[in-house]
């Protein structure tokens, strides 16, 4: 008996509705978030992540409303991310019923936000979300990552929904986020996101071994074995997926039954 590995369905929201695209583009409407989250709860999801991709004011109030509704009906941990740039934003979401808030672009631009959030709400509340992309042009000071084919690269932090490279080394940034007080890393590889060929194992394993806080692997699940690889090869503490669950390709229960058969500890009684 031990701490179990977590399966986390992720709901990308736009103006209060679930959307899901590939490679951060091409959005499709996939339904009411609270309805979907309840379905995942029934299937045995260990947590639910809501990522808001709207930038408008109306979209934000729709988000708060979704979180309130979700918190009223779901008795499992809820993480919310997207557009959080002040501790005031965090307060509003935590008050609405979120348990953790995830910061991405705003934390890269203002790393002190992680410290402030951790001091106010505790480390466990602050998730550092990192979008990373492979870069083959090696330079000084970056962490080398060896790919399965033997090639060497590094991973660069990209912000604004994957549109702006920063020149920042993702491994170093993950460590800095931990030092500043983040309680968890949510790592999305832009190499694999939406491609359905599995999580990006090299970068996930590297970051998971370099930080002392839990790492959530994100981006790329296409089949059930990918979850196993994320935990066993990527050393992730949790695996996040969206479209395979939204479009009914598999249920959370299917994934957990599979993992249990392969001796990955998961919570089965719910």
């Amino acid at each position: 008996m031990a701490l179990t590995k977590r399966i986390i369905p992720c709901l990308d929201l736009k103006s209060g509705r679930v959307v899901k695209g590939t490679n951060f583009l091409g959005l499709r409407d996939a339904g009411d978030p609270v309805e979907l989250a309840c379905r995942y709860n029934d299937q045995g999801a260990d947590e639910v992540v809501f990522l808001d991709i709207t930038a408008s004011k109306e979209g934000r109030s729709a988000l708060i409303h979704v979180i309130e509704r979700a918190a009223d009906e779901l008795f499992l941990p809820l993480t919310v991310g997207g557009g959080i740039s002040t501790t005031g934003d965090m307060t509003a979401l935590l008050r609405a019923g979120a348990d953790k808030v995830s910061v991405n672009t705003s934390a890269v631009k203002n790393p002190g936000l992680i410290n402030e959030g951790a001091e106010m709400f505790g480390n466990q509340c602050i998730v550092a979300a990192i979008d990373a992309r492979r870069n083959d042009e090696m330079k000084d000071g970056v962490n080398e990552i060896v790919m399965p084919d033997g090639s060497v690269c590094w991973y660069e932090v990209v912000i604004y929904g994957g549109s702006k490279p920063t020149g920042i080394d993702a491994v170093s940034w993950a460590k800095e986020a931990e030092e500043r007080g983040a309680g968890e890393i949510l790592l999305t590889s832009m190499e694999t996101d939406g491609v359905k060929q599995g999580f990006d194992i090299p970068v996930t394993a590297k970051i998971a071994s370099e930080v002392g806080i839990p790492v959530i692997a994100s981006g790329g699940v296409g089949n059930i074995q990918h979850f196993y690889d994320g935990f066993v090869k990527g050393h992730a503490d949790a695996c996040l997926a969206a479209s395979v669950f939204h479009f009914g390709e598999m249920t959370v229960r299917d994934v957990k039954e599979y993992l249990l058969r392969r001796d990955v500890p998961v919570r089965m009684d719910w």
Binding site: M1, R6, Q124, I213
Partner: peptide, 10 residues
């Protein structure tokens, strides 16, 4: 072991 202890345990 990661810290925080985060997730479902018995």
């Amino acid at each position: 072991f990661k810290i925080p202890h985060m997730g479902w345990n018995n």
